[in-house]
């Protein structure tokens, strides 16, 4: 499968003590409170409930935190380049070209008045000097790469003419055409049916394997993350509760080592194999956030 990371290889992304604060009229809302991780050429899952800060983490890496948010960190380094001291213009050049993000819902993230093909070609021409014909050719290849059967036909469709699964593939094509090193996928399959979901995951998986991309996969779906990712960060209230190999999530014998929050999340899912009269509910401990 994947070539294991050699220990000497520089990580794609290093993050130390990331904090995202929103200064609001009623006080400071701390969305992310001191998150640290490094990303190699791997599939890193971030799971958590709504409000756990998982999406904000992805946005902070891309410098996409809206006003009045502020990002602080002790270290935020992309392949040796310090992102904290970098000016807005350079961050912008990095964004989309080297680090890019797939959003949750294609219905709201594609431009409704441009054909999907034009949008993909535009993404390419923003980052590369290319003629429009060359950009179109690249876009068609990309549409094919995300397994769209008739790329030439789909190129001329508007977003409202494509299905949810196809829209999501178009977004992935758009994000990948610049060949980024890091792809942040924020709930890329939550709006999709299970069978389509698996096709989209397969595409992402192939890209990590074949291109050596680093993938940050943000999701609320524990089953999915467990089966898809290499490593998982479990977030709660803006903090990482624990980081663990994804395979250990399902490992019953490793339960004793798990964080109570992780166990709580696992236990409150209905399970086909173990039918219970009553589902366990999650008990939150304020000490987790201390």
């Amino acid at each position: 499968m994947r070539a294991p990371d050699s220990p000497t290889e520089q990580p794609l992304l290093e993050l130390d003590n990331l904090r995202v604060n929103f200064h609001t009229a009623t006080g400071i809302v701390r969305a992310v409170r001191g998150l640290s991780f490094t990303l190699g050429r791997e599939r890193l899952g971030i799971v958590g409930e709504s409000g756990s800060g998982k999406s904000m983490t992805g946005r902070a890496i891309l410098d996409l935190i809206p006003h009045p948010g502020e990002v602080q960190a002790d270290k935020l380094v992309y392949r040796g380049q310090n992102l904290l001291t970098m000016d807005k213009g350079s961050r912008r050049k990095l964004r989309g070209r080297h680090i890019s993000m797939v959003m949750q819902d294609p219905k709201f993230s594609l431009n409704p008045v441009k054909t999907v093909g034009e949008q993909i070609a535009e993404a390419y021409r923003v980052h590369h000097k290319a003629s429009s014909r060359e950009a179109k050719e690249r876009s068609l290849t990309m549409l094919e790469a995300v397994q769209i059967r008739e790329p030439a036909r789909v190129y001329d469709l508007y977003p409202h003419e494509v299905s949810g699964g196809m829209g999501q593939r178009v977004m992935i094509a758009m994000m990948l055409i610049a060949e980024p090193d890091i792809l942040i996928a924020d709930e890329p399959t939550s709006a999709l049916d299970v069978t389509v979901q698996l096709q989209v995951l397969k595409i992402l998986d192939d890209l990590v394997t074949s291109r050596g991309m680093g993938l940050i996969f943000i999701s609320h779906d524990l089953h999915l993350v467990q089966s898809f990712c290499d490593r998982v960060i479990v977030m709660y209230g803006g903090k990482a509760m624990e980081t663990l190999p994804a395979a250990e999530l399902a490992d019953e014998s490793a339960r004793a080592h798990r964080h109570p929050y992780t166990l709580g999340l696992l236990d409150c899912l209905p399970d086909l194999d173990h039918r219970k009269d009553k589902l366990a509910t999650l008990k939150r401990d304020p000490a987790w956030l201390a």
Partner: peptide, 29 residues
């Protein structure tokens, strides 16, 4: 969220037992 889902499902189960309700549940899960 899954933790809230568990609470709502438990509530629906309890109500059904208590009041002998008939449910039709549509879901993709």
């Amino acid at each position: 969220d899954v933790s809230i889902q568990a609470e709502v499902l438990n509530l629906l189960q309890a109500l059904r037992k208590e009041r002998n309700l008939t449910y039709i549940l549509v879901s993709h899960d």
